[in-house]
Design a protein around this nucleic acid. Structure first.
Lengths: 209, 209
DNA sequence: GTCTATACTGTGATAGAC
DNA sequence: GTCTATCACAGTATAGAC
């Protein structure tokens, strides 16, 4: 029994099926949450049989855990890229843009994350208090240094980040509501959103003269 | 069998127990989502027995439906109050403040709503396309009229509303993440958030001179 | 390595005593 | 009107044939 735990020592077939399962699981978990999802649904979505899935993964939780584990890296990456700059407003707005693009291109990942947080983050609380907190502490210090240098308006760094996360992820997480309200714009929606958020955060950060 | 459908013709005891159940159900549903919640949990939370709950309500869905029905009225009320004014920026910021207070005072309601939307709004899609869309169409027209009159900066009205909803509800819906990142500030968190959002939306809306 | 058949558990809902 | 006991079903997981 291989029970795909380490990535090493797997045949090509095993890797492919593992990916196939994870892809299907992401689709299902992001739509119905952890408890709302069944292995049957993942089986149907992936085209594999239920026992076959349980051959590759050690249960429903294990699949979910792998997805969450991968997610956090991807999720934090754009923030890691934000670094010191002579034009901090551009730097922050580039981060906003990147984050919005992720909401557009990876809405399922965003919803998987949202589902988890919304229900009290039972499976990733330690990740939030560890890597996430470390990174945000670091970046809020950076933002504070820009404030202190008078390069941007005196904003509350943590809450600025919250506003960025909230406004960008909203387009993925509340997608249904957005489209119910807007009727049905397509990509146009993201272009307008991009322009709006750019305006908003530039205005927010512009130092008083 | 009374099966509490209409509010009329109920004894005082019936109303009380009904409320007791709904209160417990809100607690549970907001925490675990619809499918993640069990009647057992609601029973435990309310102090009533499982069959007793099913005596008052026609099943799990029925309880959830009542909660969602009540929610939408409460949820839209602050937006309804936003009306034409000589100082539109104050009017919008008052709305933001009211919305943030709701996130603080009714986080469970916010999460119940978020859970529902996140999973595709299967039970309230028509409400979104009906009452919610009607109201937002009306209010975005109002905002557009302020833009046209040059009273506020040229923002995209729909996306302005999305930003307000996203930033305020974030403090209820992503509460766990907020506290993981901040450590443990208490009410202080909401005061700082209030000041931050006020600054952000004023800056966003201030017309170019 | 993959399937069929099946055991076991948790959950929604009902029947019937009190 | 409320409880105890129980059913029926869905869902996770396993055993064993192939």
């Amino acid at each position: 029994m291989a029970r795909a735990e380490s990535t090493k020592g797997q045949t090509r077939i095993q890797r492919e099926k593992t990916e196939q399962i994870l892809e299907a699981a992401l689709e299902v978990f992001s739509k119905y949450g952890f408890r709302g999802s069944t292995i049957d649904q993942i089986a149907g979505q992936s085209g594999l049989s239920k026992p076959n899935i349980l051959y590759y993964f050690d249960g429903k939780e294990a699949i979910h855990a792998v997805l969450l584990g991968r997610l956090l890296d991807t999720w934090l990456e754009p923030l890691e890229h934000m670094s010191d700059s002579d034009t901090p407003i551009d730097e922050i707005c580039a981060y906003v843009k990147r984050k919005l693009e992720m909401a557009r291109d990876f809405p399922r990942e965003s919803r998987l994350f949202a589902n988890e947080i919304l229900q009290g983050a039972p499976r990733i609380l330690s990740e939030l208090q560890g890597p996430l907190k470390t990174l945000t502490d670091e970046k809020t210090s950076l933002i504070q240094s820009w404030v202190d240098a008078g390069k941007i308006a005196p904003v509350a760094p943590y809450h600025l980040l919250f506003s960025i996360w909230a406004t960008t992820q909203h387009y993925a997480d509340f997608d249904v509501q957005v489209h119910a309200v807007l009727g049905d714009c397509k990509e146009d929606c993201f272009e307008t959103a991009q322009a709006h958020l750019d305006h908003m955060f530039r205005a927010t950060l512009r130092p008083e003269t």
